[in-house]
Amino acid sequence: YWITCCPTCDVDINTWVPFYSTELNKPAMIYCSHGDGHWVHAQCMDLAERTLIHLSAGSNKYYCNEHVEIARALHTP
Score class of each variant (00 low, 15 high):
65 N>M: 08
4 T>Q: 06
10 D>N: 13
16 W>T: 07
6 C>R: 03
14 N>V: 07
42 A>D: 01
8 T>G: 05
29 M>L: 14
3 I>Q: 06
23 E>G: 03
50 R>L: 13
58 G>K: 10
42 A>K: 03
28 A>I: 07
37 G>K: 01
35 G>A: 07
46 D>P: 05
69 E>T: 12
2 W>P: 04
20 Y>W: 06
6 C>H: 01
44 C>F: 00
18 P>G: 03
41 H>D: 01
17 V>T: 03
72 R>Y: 04
67 H>Q: 03
50 R>G: 13
75 H>N: 14
6 C>Y: 05
33 S>T: 11
13 I>T: 04
9 C>S: 01
67 H>P: 03
22 T>C: 08
33 S>P: 08
72 R>F: 08
26 K>G: 07
23 E>K: 02
47 L>V: 13
34 H>V: 08
18 P>L: 11
54 H>E: 13
72 R>L: 09
27 P>D: 00
73 A>T: 13
71 A>R: 13
51 T>E: 11
55 L>V: 09
68 V>A: 07
48 A>H: 05
33 S>I: 11
28 A>M: 05
1 Y>E: 10
43 Q>M: 10
2 W>N: 15
10 D>T: 13
8 T>A: 03
33 S>F: 11
73 A>D: 13
68 V>W: 09
36 D>T: 02
45 M>D: 06
72 R>V: 11
46 D>C: 13
46 D>K: 15
69 E>K: 06
60 N>Q: 09
18 P>V: 01
47 L>D: 02
72 R>E: 10
30 I>R: 04
45 M>C: 06
59 S>N: 05
46 D>E: 10
71 A>D: 11
52 L>K: 03
39 W>L: 09
39 W>R: 06
49 E>N: 06
48 A>R: 13
45 M>A: 07
24 L>S: 07
64 C>Y: 01
12 D>V: 04
27 P>S: 00
73 A>E: 12
8 T>N: 14
50 R>D: 11
10 D>V: 15
40 V>A: 04
66 E>V: 09
57 A>N: 14
69 E>V: 07
33 S>R: 07
33 S>W: 09
35 G>D: 08
32 C>P: 00
1 Y>D: 08
3 I>G: 11
51 T>W: 03
64 C>K: 01
55 L>D: 07
3 I>H: 05
25 N>R: 10
59 S>M: 10
40 V>F: 00
32 C>K: 00
19 F>K: 08
45 M>G: 03
33 S>N: 10
6 C>M: 03
56 S>A: 14
10 D>C: 13
59 S>F: 09
48 A>Y: 09
9 C>P: 00
73 A>S: 09
32 C>V: 01
3 I>Y: 06
66 E>R: 08
12 D>L: 04
72 R>T: 14
55 L>Q: 13
43 Q>S: 07
58 G>R: 07
42 A>W: 01
9 C>H: 01
31 Y>V: 05
42 A>L: 01
37 G>E: 01
35 G>L: 10
53 I>A: 15
21 S>D: 07
70 I>L: 13
6 C>S: 15
74 L>G: 15
1 Y>H: 03
8 T>R: 06
11 V>A: 01
46 D>G: 11
65 N>P: 13
21 S>T: 04
63 Y>C: 15
57 A>R: 11
70 I>W: 07
31 Y>T: 06
71 A>F: 05
15 T>F: 14
36 D>C: 09
42 A>R: 03
3 I>T: 09
65 N>I: 15
73 A>N: 06
